[in-house]
Design a protein around this nucleic acid. Structure first.
Length: 536
RNA sequence: GUUCACAUAGCUCAACUGGAUAGAGCACUUCCCUCCGAAGGAAGAGGUUGUAGGUUCAAGUCCUAUUGUGAACACCA
């Protein structure tokens, strides 16, 4: 690694100035004239040395020696810029082609694990756009962390117990009975979506009136199973494969909830008042206390949720991630607080909040609501814009942008959608490589020596550090930005350079080069769940 | 009212979490296919990073105040 060489040489230079154990930041300047690499070390040290940053920089420069570096410049206010030999960029072509699907991966997460819980929509309806965004984020993050060596579990928490499932059962039952000519009201917090009506209609078609006297539990279970199957199917289509679907019913069944609450009391974080049991969350970073056991003796939703997180910890996960909509932000302090109340370190839970997606259609905001059935579902989205576009689109932005999803725009199959731009680069390369069969290995690259090629080569070289950065910061959109930039640098090169020429050796070099670009594009796109086509 | 996010070009978003002249796409104005895919490329125009202070060698980024937008504030989940 060339960065390591420069850092080592810098450390040696610093040692001669009697400076030790300093963290050196090496960055890639935006402007070419500021070198291939740069460091701000002199600016950082100036204060403690009580010296002018430029003086410090020059002293370091005078003591700096590194074979790979051809030139060192000091620039105001005190940056040190390094210009290096380009060989490492050309050598990287062979590295990429050799590593193939592994190029860009790292082992920083070796021996560490992550449990990422996301989507986790109640099985009382179908998935909507918010789930699509959270799903794209969670799954891409999982892919990136795996690529960085972590052991990652993608988990979906199924709320298959509680009031909402009762309402689901009642809603289906009501629709069914109404079809039998027994007009029945859907309960106040019931579900009115077309998928509910469909379930009832299918029941009527298959069983006529024989289910008339079935108990509510029958409709609850039936509805949960059908809707969960629908959810699982669309998620698979969306290229998300959950490792585990955890059932709330099971968790509650195997957890000792009374004991858990006793432990909270013993630790001084739960108390009884007005006939209910309360979590003293105000002492744990929340703005007020919350009820755990209602005065009718039943648990609030919080209790199974806490038990679920404890269950994950007991299964051996040392890093938990929850992906939630911002409408749940108040819930974070309660959940982390309750972990602390039970003696766990709340920092093992990292909650990622995503801003809700606003749906716009024909310039008018459409309110999303599962209940009214007016929402655009993930299935519809996939049908209309395609899986690649949907995954790419949601992976483009950081989670904290309040993004508008313009359905009309997303439907357009034009270059307004950047996924086409990136796919196009991949298809162009594939066409060339598929037409040229006799690619030979190159030991020493002699012909590739122009700035446009070096721009692409630098992008290729950057990929592993982009992956590492995206993993450490849990920001998949850095990958999406990267892949766009790589495609862009290729398109520029393509417009100026003819790859297949009379010179066979030169052509061979470029075929290896193109192959490396294709490998990197594919690896990067895979991390965000996009599969580029060889032809468009 | 309290709490949490967010505010960058006309529009949608970046900016390697404190670095050098804030970058892309769309839309707008020009130009480039005899030639591996023009779903592409080149050039132009577009900005007091909501506002006002502060911290420091350095602020879109951190702190305070303020304005605007969204969300949450049940013995519902």
């Amino acid at each position: 690694m060339i960065e390591e060489s420069i850092k080592n040489s810098l450390n040696e230079a610093l040692a001669t100035l009697d400076i030790h154990d300093t963290i050196i930041e090496l960055t890639k300047p935006q402007k070419k004239e500021n070198g291939d690499f740069a460091t701000n070390i002199a600016l950082k040290l100036a204060k403690s040395l009580q010296d002018n940053p430029l003086n410090v920089a020059n002293k370091i420069k005078n003591n700096f020696k590194c074979e790979l570096v051809t030139n060192v410049e000091v620039a105001p206010p005190g940056f040190i810029n390094f210009f290096v030999k380009k060989d490492y960029l050309l050598d990287n072509i062979n590295t990429i082609n050799k590593e193939g699907a592994n190029y860009g991966s790292n082992t920083s997460g070796k021996g560490l694990n992550y449990n990422i819980e996301f989507v986790s929509a109640n099985p009382t309806g179908i998935l909507h756009l918010g789930n699509a965004r959270g799903g794209a984020y969670g799954d891409s993050l999982a892919r990136i962390l795996r690529f960085s060596g972590y052991d990652v579990t993608e988990e979906y928490y199924v709320n298959d117990a509680g009031v909402q499932i009762t309402n689901l059962g009642l809603s289906i039952q009501a629709r069914y009975l109404t079809l039998l000519g027994i007009p029945t009201e859907i309960p106040e917090n019931g579900y009115h979506g077309p998928e509910i009506t469909e379930i009832a209609e299918n029941l009527f078609k298959e069983h006529k009136d024989t289910l008339k006297d079935k108990e509510l539990d029958y409709f609850k279970e039936l509805g949960t199973n059908i809707l969960l199957d629908k959810i699982k199917k669309v998620l698979r289509d969306y290229r998300i494969n959950f490792d585990i679907y955890s059932s709330e019913k099971n968790i509650v069944g195997k957890s000792n909830l009374p004991k858990m609450i006793e432990t909270m009391k013993d630790n001084g974080y739960a108390y009884e008042s007005e006939g209910a049991t309360w979590l003293k969350s105000s002492a744990l970073g929340d703005d007020k206390d919350h009820v755990l056991i209602k005065n009718d003796g039943t648990y609030t939703y919080l209790v199974p949720d806490i038990a679920y997180h404890i269950d994950k910890i007991k299964r051996g996960y040392t890093n938990l991630i929850d992906v939630l909509g911002t409408d749940h932000h108040g819930y974070v302090a309660r959940l982390k607080g309750s972990l602390k109340a039970l003696g766990y370190n709340p920092d093992i839970l990292d909650v990622k909040l995503l801003q809700l997606v606003r749906l716009v259609k024909d310039g008018v905001e459409v309110k999303m609501s599962k209940r009214t059935g007016n929402s655009v579902s993930l299935q519809e989205l996939i049908d209309e814009v395609g899986i690649n576009a949907a995954r790419y689109f949601f992976s483009m932005h950081s989670l904290d942008t309040q993004m508008d999803f313009d359905l009309e725009l997303a439907k357009k199959k034009s270059n307004e959608n950047p996924v086409y731009y990136v796919s196009y680069a991949y298809a162009r390369i594939s066409t060339i490589l598929n037409s040229y069969k006799n690619i030979k290995n190159i030991n020493k690259y002699l012909y590739i020596n122009d700035n446009l090629s070096y721009n692409v080569l630098e992008k290729l070289y950057e990929f592993p550090s982009v992956v590492l950065n995206a993993a450490n910061k849990k920001l998949p959109h850095l990958i999406t930005n990267y892949v766009y930039e790589l495609a862009s640098s290729f398109h520029v090169l393509y417009s100026k350079k003819r790859f297949i020429t009379e010179n066979e050796d030169e052509t061979n070099e470029y075929m290896n080069f193109l192959s490396a670009i294709r490998v990197t594009l594919k690896n990067a796109l895979d991390l965000i769940g996009v599969i580029p086509p060889e032809r468009m």
